[in-house]
Design a protein around this nucleic acid. Structure first.
Lengths: 371, 371
DNA sequence: CTGTTAGCGCATTCAG
DNA sequence: CTGAATGCGCTAACAG
């Protein structure tokens, strides 16, 4: 009878035999070297490299009912805001030996639920998930998972376990106040893709405008969300809805429809870039005739002509801290603060500098340091 | 004696008992429903949902020595070129039930080798990996893996199994020829982060320039690659090296050092955007005084003022096709063509339209009225 | 510090 | 179409 061993990869038993020890000693030498005498350790290491032994993590997962996979769910892979978050997560990995299973929820709570269900079958070591709009079933699965769960990129009083993010509403509020203080009055809001967080930002904008007696619902630039492309099967993603092209279109339309506007607050830097190009194309002076502000503070905002005002959010850090929180809990540390507010900063640049204050300062220290 | 069962999740045996069948029938009903009578299937489905049974994929992986994990390795998560590829890969997943383990190689072949080693311990169903610059050991591991391996985003005569991409050298060549045909002569090349593919693009540029007797090595704008930040532990990624800020800096430097240049071919659209802003800041007319071309054709290129010429590459499709190729092989289909060239398109826009052929009317607009 | 025993939960034979 | 026996490769729990 032939042995069942379909693959002829060496197993831990082969290593044990070769090193003249038992399998469990090999297992220990690999996972907790300090618990094995250096003599045996040397023999085992030798056998491992001679045999080219590679542990089977699936078997390990089954035997120990633990894995080294951290599941990460984000609504988009192409919006830099999330790719930066994901990069922060990866940078937080370092040499932890953990691995990332990344899932794309496409801003759909239903799809997210399906993905979480699939992920649970893997028994992940931890879950990092964006936002707070999980379905009831998703939340239940996550609560039942008995592993660290960290929500990111938003805030709530009622996190599943822990949430690390910032207030979109306050950010929208403060930026709008900045625009009002700068002297702008008819401030449009460009929405792009209206997800829950966009709505919060708009809520802040609305509050600030109402406080100042300036709110006008007509000053909203957006596209319908009722687009069949957003359905699950879509391959288009929704990325076209927060594109520079759309920012340009929205601005051209707004200049046509409401030529009296004197500023636009864009829900997304990418839109604000398009708005700037529209102004350039129409000969509209920024910031004198129209002020422009974005959201996220991507790198191009500082490089634009004129440099564009934005809200710097700590997206990289959000991912990084989430990963560190996961690792801490995996090491047995307590959960700590359930709500971590990373804050944000209003970065004032020339595009909203109607009175030339920033420009005056910039005379002394040019924004771009050349080599 | 207590049962070992640490977790009290239901197992396939519990379902079997409840449904009055054997475990293997449950297993089959779940994986190949058509091989089980509809009567039993109903009973099993009932038991599954009553018990809330969720199969343990780690056990399945161990028993079948197969997994549903596709490992994907890319050099960066934040450059849109790769986030678009990754999105294509995800869009290709559809309902295949496959999962993605995504790894970030940070443009380091050594890190890539370590990551591949780690991934192999998971016995992935397939591997999708960017480029052709794997180390010898990486290649060996991949060849030994006995699973589908697809390389992407480049071409080579000697793929590990299959490669899907396009020729960076030809793209560089054809864009440079376009610039020369448009009447430009002193054409600078902005490199940004000089990886293997950037070098190929530059090779194409150089060839075209030499053919025309125009090559001048002094017309290169780049930053040193010998930056310690690029080392493995870096949290900065190299993203600053292909940023809009850097494009602006490179252009300002070049205008200073070689005021005679009449065009720049940027290795990356993001750089070209910065170059455009630099021209605007200095009052340099695009495309009349200086032509600008990029690489990738990101969405903002069409929205810029003036719209920017670029090379459209099929990055989304590259990811999508790679995923489809993987699925095909997993379904037992042959590998097919080992080298799949997806090509590229030169997208000519106003920024290189020196003679006003593309958009005569669009250039009527008055010069930018910005400070 | 090291070894023995006994599974982890499922899928692969091969029978019926 | 269904089932019984067996082991995938590793590690937990105890013992020595």
């Amino acid at each position: 009878m032939t042995k069942k061993r379909s693959s002829n990869r060496p197993t831990i038993a082969d290593v044990a035999e070769r090193a003249g020890v038992s399998a469990i000693t090999v297992s220990r030498a690999l996972r907790e070297p300090q618990k094995v005498s250096s003599e045996l350790r040397r023999a085992i290491d030798g056998a491992v490299s001679e045999l080219n032994y590679v542990p089977d993590l699936n078997a390990r997962a089954l035997a120990s009912s633990r894995t080294d996979v951290v599941a990460v769910l984000v609504p988009s892979l192409t919006q830099h805001i999330f790719s930066d978050v994901v990069r922060g997560i990866y940078d937080g990995l370092e040499d932890s030996g953990l691995r990332i299973e990344l899932a794309n929820t496409r801003y759909s709570a239903e799809l997210e639920e399906q993905l979480v269900f699939g992920i649970m079958r893997h028994r992940p070591a931890a879950v990092i998930i964006s936002g707070t709009e999980q379905t009831a079933r998703t939340r239940k699965m996550l609560e039942a998972a008995k592993c660290p769960v960290v929500q990111i990129m938003d805030l709530t009083d009622d996190p599943i376990q822990k949430i690390i993010g910032f207030s979109h509403e306050r950010a929208g509020l403060e930026m709008t106040r900045h625009l009002i203080e700068a002297g702008y009055r008819r401030i449009a809001f460009f929405a792009g893709w209206m997800n829950a967080r966009s709505l919060q930002r708009h809520g802040g904008y609305r509050q600030a405008m109402e406080e100042a007696g300036l709110y006008d619902p007509d000053l909203l630039g957006q596209r319908s969300n009722d687009n069949p492309e957003f359905s699950r099967g879509s391959r288009q993603d929704f990325h076209q809805f927060s594109s520079t092209v759309m920012g340009r279109e929205l601005m051209l339309e707004m200049l046509e429809r409401r030529p009296d506007i004197d500023a636009v607050f864009c829900n997304n830097d990418v839109l604000s870039l398009g708005a700037l190009f529209a102004c350039q194309a129409k000969g509209v002076a920024v910031p004198q005739q129209v002020g422009i502000a974005g959201f996220n503070d991507f790198d191009f905002m500082a490089a634009a002509e004129p440099p564009l005002t934005s809200i710097r959010i700590h997206r990289w850090r959000c991912g990084f801290e989430a990963m560190k929180a996961v690792q801490g809990q995996l090491n047995g540390e307590p959960v700590g603060e359930p709500v971590v507010d990373l804050g944000f900063e209003i970065i004032k640049r020339a595009s909203t500098d109607r009175n030339g204050e920033v420009a005056a300062a910039a005379q002394e220290a040019p924004p771009l340091a050349l080599s």
